[in-house]
Computed example of a mutant assay.
Amino acid sequence: MSLCLRKSLPAEMISRNNFSIWSILKKCIGMELSKIAMPVVFNEPLSFLQRISEYMEHTHLIHKACSLPDSMERMQVVAAFAVSAVASQWERTGKPFNPLLGETFELTREEEGYRLISEQVSHHPPVSAFHVQSLQQEFEFHGSIYPKLKFWGKSVEAEPKGTMTLELLK
């Protein structure tokens, strides 16, 4: 059975030109962005739990790290995997939807060799947990994320709090 992953959404993104984000945000200076009600057009058509799965876009680096005998080379490849998560966010200004408490997202990518499950484990503060298992028992990747964003007028402060652990099992 062949799997066909889509490269684009079936409908075009709604134009944000008719909305002024600054008129909304200037009233919210110093507030945490998770508490600000934003028009839906500023959201991406996915939830934060789905966005967590984007950490696994470069799974080939974990598989490579598992096959390397030298610990320094393994650490270099794992570091490359750790920073690769930001590659999918380049020039993306949309905010993912906040998941409901207890909401889950599950993804199995047999061709990439992993299974992921994520869950919203706390509503306030918002905390998302995830667990990824290698289908070949090569690695486990798990953690919890507590994103904290504040708007300061001319800048946005993003603090991705949480813990992530990658275990190479072999």
Rank of each mutant, 00 (worst) to 15 (best):
V77T: 11
F19A: 10
S20H: 07
V121W: 03
F130I: 02
K27H: 06
M38C: 04
E32L: 10
V127S: 11
F19I: 11
S2F: 14
E159H: 01
A79E: 08
P96E: 06
G94C: 14
F130A: 03
Q136D: 11
E112M: 14
I52M: 15
P125G: 12
R92E: 01
L101R: 10
M164Y: 01
H58L: 10
P96G: 10
E110C: 10
S8Q: 11
A80E: 02
L9H: 00
G113F: 10
S71D: 05
L33D: 00
Y146G: 03
E119Y: 03
L9K: 02
E106P: 04
H58W: 10
Q133P: 00
L135V: 08
E54M: 14
R16P: 01
S144G: 04
I24D: 05
K27G: 07
N17Q: 07
F81A: 06
C28F: 06
W90M: 04
K26V: 05
E112N: 01
R51Y: 03
F139T: 04
S47F: 07
I145E: 06
P10H: 15
M72C: 14
A37F: 07
S84R: 12
L5T: 03
V86D: 05
P125T: 11
E140M: 14
A87N: 08
E111D: 06
V86K: 10
K27I: 00
C4A: 12
E157N: 11
L46R: 07
I21R: 02
T59N: 00
S67P: 04
A158F: 11
E91V: 10
V86E: 09
M31W: 00
V40H: 00
M56D: 01
S88Y: 10
C66F: 03
A158E: 08
W90D: 05
K154T: 07
F141M: 09
L5W: 01
E167L: 14
Q76D: 12
V41N: 09
Q137P: 01
S155Y: 11
A82G: 04
S134F: 12
K161V: 08
F151M: 04
E54C: 06
T93W: 09
G94V: 09
F48H: 03
H124D: 05
F151T: 00
F130Y: 01
S2I: 14
V127L: 15
G113V: 13
S155Q: 13
D70F: 11
P96K: 14
E73N: 01
L166G: 04
S34A: 10
M38T: 00
K95M: 08
S8Y: 08
E119T: 07
Y55E: 05
A65L: 13
P39K: 15
L135K: 09
W152P: 04
K161C: 08
V121C: 12
E138D: 14
I62E: 06
N17W: 09
R109Q: 02
D70C: 15
S134I: 13
F105S: 12
H124E: 10
V132E: 12
